[in-house]
Amino acid sequence: MAFLGRYILAAIGLAAVLVGVLAAVYLTAPRQAGPDLARTKKTVNGLFVASIAPDRDPITQGELHSWVLTLKSAAGDPVENAAIDISGGMPQHSHGLPTSPQATDYLGGGQYRIDGIKFSMSGWWTLHFNISAKAGSDSVTFNVVL
């Protein structure tokens, strides 16, 4: 009997340890692994504040779609007549975007339509914008996880 008791105790102890370890892994993993997913960011040199929004959420894998990029000055005014160059890729697979997206339209209020974006696989993607406007040139990188 005493023997069996010790077995049961040991089993319970082991189960508790397992649950603890799993909980620790589960609770901490997302925070450690995920890149920053902010959809609004200051550009690298602080010239602009950029926001991005996809035309669909959740984003569908493997389909061409559009985003809207909104550019404001540091003071919060819309940035007009910006020249925008878009690149990006998958940092963990060392390849670029499968398409070459372009800014196709100015929608007013600092908003630019970005067409031709496609994410061909799930995982961590970056979208990098080089922006030139009257205030100067600056860039910003967003992370997107599918």
Binding site: S100, Q102, G116, K118
Partner: peptide, 13 residues
């Protein structure tokens, strides 16, 4: 024609 229009053309990959 989005696929053709926005096709990636020059990348080394």
């Amino acid at each position: 024609c989005g696929e053709l229009k926005f096709m990636s053309k020059a990348a080394p990959e």
